[in-house]
């Protein structure tokens, strides 16, 4: 197991434990971005967990804010805050509310949750760095269901027009949204073709493959004057077979079989990491 695979397993484990503790949450869309977060926070992003507001850092905007638990798990594993804090998800007066809040959580750069708004904030941040000729990069993950929002396309136009190659937009194409398959709700057609028509450089990768994701990011670093998008081919509930195939897997209230399967997944992930002999100090 490579380092990034291990990091992904740790993040996935913490997401599961967090939602198990809470009893419910956005499991599907959190798990589909685990490998991407692993690549970003484990490799390509310039960060300083001891000083989350470090001026030289790269910024991350989770436009699909309902995947907050995945971001919190990543930040905890990267030691932005104690991992015990993950058990406070959605508690009264918690520092980790369901959707990311920059005023509450160390390491959260931008407040998101109302779909479509995060990507506008991200293009603004990227444009600002351009204006100031700063080298900070911006990364943002947009949901495929989120692309129903008109504001997303306003922001994409802006990124393309201003050739914001310092911003890498990921679209988490997990093919499902709250009410069902994206193609049945509002057909997204071919997102890659659409983005290319908007003037983007677009790569499509397997969203559960860290090395593919990293390779795509490094390729985007070579782009000088065009907007960049990486489409992540993923599934909701990624990495846990039962949840991948569960029909209603956007937001799960765990009980009976789903709780049993979550427990199994937690044990399996723990064993995987233990068998590596490099248990993180998180459990």
């Amino acid at each position: 197991m490579g380092d990034l695979k291990k990091l992904s397993a740790k993040i996935r484990l913490e997401v599961c434990k967090m939602l198990k503790h809470r009893g419910f949450g956005h499991l599907g869309g959190s798990l589909s971005i685990v490998e991407t977060l692993s690549v970003l926070y484990g490799d390509v992003m310039k960060i300083n967990p001891l000083n989350p507001n470090w001026e030289g850092r790269d910024w991350f905007v989770l436009s699909k804010g309902h995947a907050g638990p995945a971001l919190y798990a990543t930040l905890a594993v990267k030691e932005y805050f104690p991992v015990e804090m993950l058990n406070t998800l959605n508690d009264n007066s918690t520092r980790i509310p369901s959707h990311p809040d920059r005023l509450k959580t160390p390491g959260v750069d931008v407040t998101t949750g109302s779909l479509g708004q995060g990507i506008s904030l991200a293009v603004g941040i990227a444009k600002s760095f351009r204006m100031s000729q700063k080298s900070n990069r911006v990364y943002s993950i947009v949901g495929d269901g989120e692309c129903n929002e008109g504001q997303v396309w306003e922001a994409f136009q802006f990124a393309a027009h201003h050739r914001l190659s310092n911003l890498i937009i990921f679209i988490d194409e997990n093919h499902k949204q709250l009410d069902g398959p994206t193609k049945d709700i509002v057909n997204p057609f071919d997102i890659k073709e659409k983005l290319e028509a908007f003037g983007f450089v677009v790569k499509r990768v397997k969203g559960n493959d860290e090395s593919e994701i990293k390779k795509a990011v490094l390729e985007m670093f070579e782009v000088q004057d065009k907007a960049c998008c990486i489409i992540l081919d993923t599934v909701k509930g990624q990495g846990i077979e039962y949840f991948e195939t569960l029909a209603d897997n956007h937001h799960i209230r765990f009980s009976g079989e789903s709780e049993f399967q979550l427990d199994l997944a937690i044990e399996k992930l723990k064993q995987e990491l233990e068998s590596e002999g490099r248990l993180c100090n998180l459990f």
Binding site: S120, L121, A122, I125, K127, S128, F129, Q151, A155
Partner: peptide, 18 residues
């Protein structure tokens, strides 16, 4: 351009970086 939602959002984003 004629995209007020993005204008407000992007402007807020710019403000977060000073």
């Amino acid at each position: 351009g004629i995209s007020e939602a993005n204008m407000i959002g992007a402007s807020c984003g710019m403000s977060l970086t000073g």
